Simulated scan of single mutants.
Amino acid sequence: MDVLVCGAGVAGAALAYWLRHHRFTPTVVERAPGVRTGGYATGLRGEALDVLDRMALLDQVRALDLRLGGAAMTDEDALPVAIRPTDVEILRDDLAGLLYQATCGEVEYVFDDSIATLEQTDADVRVTFDRGRPRRFDLVAGADGLHSRTRSLVFGPQERFVRHLGLYTAVFGLPGRFGGRVHRVPGKAAGVLVTRDGSRARAALHFASGPLAYNRDDHGQHKHIVAERFAGQGRLVRRLLAEMWEAENLFFEANAQVEMDRWYAGRVVLVGDAGYCAAPSSGRGASQALIGAYILAGELATAGDQAEAFAAYEREMRGFVAEHQQMGREGADQFFLGPPPEEELGTTVARPHLVRLRNYAPGLAAERSSPGRAAR
């Protein structure tokens, strides 16, 4: 089967990996001119680490773990993330870069383009693009995030599915000399994260707000919004705002969740944030993306047809998504309630995992141990 994957982030690249492994032919289209950089850190644990192990990427991910060796991940009190045990903490763009490198040799990537229209038939999906020529695919997978164009074209406008959690986050790069620091006042928080080697630092500024109207592509407008919200704050925030004005790669987004009754329609399916975003406040978005991609590709490889595969994928993922979306709501609530007392930090017991990963590829452990193994 030829499968169009819309989005080259964690969900899209991971799905491309597993589709190729199962002998499908994926094509990934991404509206950005390359793999997106920037963004903050993401926590990985449990089944997500199992998926990375099956991809032979776990050692590389652990080598980039921000928490190893006393890493300067000192902003837990500032971030609107539910306090939960985390096995690995990695910058999101580092993870996306590893997934891209694991797939780009055998997967077609089309950057600086996006789908314009989708027309489904009984036999295929006819796709037009903003720049490229029209093409036909057997299936289309929307992995294009919270503001998924795939979802809008097939399921309806964003307003039907996106639930705002009352928070916005801005993330941008800093010189490595900053070091880890925290600033927190009612309704506002700022944190600085530094990589283990001190070569890279990221600032994250969070503020409480109802839904805002703004142009998603106008980073200058985003900077003005953030500067207005943090005007009059302390010395650290003033320094961060000064750096923000010079930052070339600013990530600005709402903490929001995607809630849908069904993640597929005909030959089109959603994976990752496009179908079930848990919000950055969950700390589990990348984990969901990795597991969803693994299960979706595995079900497509083992089911009788795509309808059976999509239904099985949704059954496997629903409990897991419900768990992590609840964590996202609790994480957002924590921002408003303030950090828990020091004696409670690290004592919260994580809910039991609701997903038991099937082995869709018997013998994979032997394959991945062979020298020079590439993505299949």
Rank of each mutant, 00 (worst) to 15 (best):
C277P: 06
L290S: 02
A307I: 10
G283Y: 03
A289N: 10
I291K: 10
A254G: 12
M244S: 11
T302P: 02
S287E: 04
V271N: 14
G285D: 04
M244Q: 12
V269T: 12
Y294S: 00
C277S: 11
L250W: 13
D273W: 00
S287R: 00
G292E: 01
N255I: 07
A301W: 00
L300D: 01
N249T: 14
Y294V: 02
A289D: 10
A274K: 06
A256F: 09
Q257L: 09
E246P: 07
L290H: 02
Q257F: 07
N255A: 14
A303V: 08
G292M: 03
A278C: 15
A256E: 06
L270M: 10
G272K: 04
T302Y: 05
A289C: 08
A303P: 09
N255F: 13
G285R: 07
A265H: 13
G304P: 09
E243H: 14
I291R: 10
S282W: 01
Q257G: 10
R284H: 13
C277V: 04
Q306T: 11
A274Q: 04
P280M: 04
Q288M: 14
D273E: 05
V258H: 08
S282D: 03
S287G: 05
L300V: 01
A279I: 00
Y264I: 06
W263P: 06
G298P: 11
V268E: 03
R284A: 15
G266A: 00
L270D: 08
W245R: 15
G266C: 00
A307Q: 15
S287H: 02
S282N: 09
V271F: 07
E299D: 08
N255K: 05
A303L: 11
A303S: 15
W263K: 03
E253I: 09
